[in-house]
Nucleic acid binder design. Structure first.
Length: 231
DNA sequence: TGGACGATCCCCT
DNA sequence: GGGGATCGTCCAT
């Protein structure tokens, strides 16, 4: 079911319980489709509907947890319902929903959302004029960003689709960075609401994007036909 | 201590 | 379709 007025839809939604996240990772990945991710940012709500997600599991060669717990991936081993944010390619953040019991290193990467509320703020976060000194190269300054402040992307495509149709784009639009690593999704900073139920007929499934090892696993889930999923 | 590389994005060809 | 940007992390010296 789709809502003509997203404001109405999220006001009637409830925050997902801890139990939701403690379930099997593949189950959580599929069920996250259609849920509303809420980011409280500077007194405003940013809300997006999750339309693409990938599961990463223990024993999975594509997972950061494949070689065991490290300082970087430690949040993956927390109990389900936390946010694991990592920094990659020297300039991007990606966000995962931690799943399963404490001690189990599994998570679901949020690859794309459909923006619903706070689109003006997302636009500014992604495409706005940065606040660093004008003489500083944008690429240099953007890498120092830690998720709380300045905007960034140097792109010519400022269409709504380009706001959140990829894991790092979504993080940039939602101002998710280092400081959000380990956030409790049952808290008030970032959380997920029980949004729309996506019927099986609209759930697409494929291999995961951008990995070498474990590429045969069909652990990517997306909402068929939604314009915001990444490819 | 060094080097390779990455769950990406962007622009150019 | 391909390469560059850019740096934290991990593993091999």
């Amino acid at each position: 079911m789709t809502f003509r007025n997203p404001q109405f839809a999220f006001s009637n939604s409830k925050k997902l319980s801890r139990a939701f996240y403690l379930r099997a990772t593949l189950r959580v990945a599929r069920d996250l489709l259609g849920k509303y991710l809420v980011r409280e940012y500077r007194g405003k709500k940013l809300i997006g509907k999750i339309v693409e997600a990938e599961a990463y599991r223990e024993g999975d060669p594509a997972s950061h947890s494949f070689r065991g717990k490290t300082k970087r991936n430690e949040v993956m081993y927390w109990k389900g319902g936390h946010l694991y944010v990592y920094f990659t390619y020297g300039m991007h953040f990606c966000a995962n929903v931690v799943t399963g019991k404490a001690g189990v290193g599994e998570a679901v990467l949020i690859r794309a959302v459909e923006p619903l509320i706070g689109i003006d703020v997302m636009m500014r976060n992604r495409f706005g004029t940065h606040q660093f000194p004008p003489e500083a190269p944008a690429r240099l300054t953007s890498s120092r960003w830690s998720g709380g402040d300045a905007p960034l992307a140097q792109t010519n495509d400022q269409s709504p689709i380009n706001l959140t149709n990829g894991p790092a784009k979504f993080c940039e639009a939602f101002a998710i960075g280092r400081e959000q690593n380990g956030a409790d999704l049952l808290g008030d900073q970032i959380y997920i609401l029980n949004g729309e139920r996506i019927p099986e007929s609209k759930v697409g499934r494929s291999t995961r994007i951008g990995i070498k090892n474990g590429r045969e696993k069909k652990w990517r889930f997306f909402v068929k036909g939604n314009p915001w999923f990444s490819r």
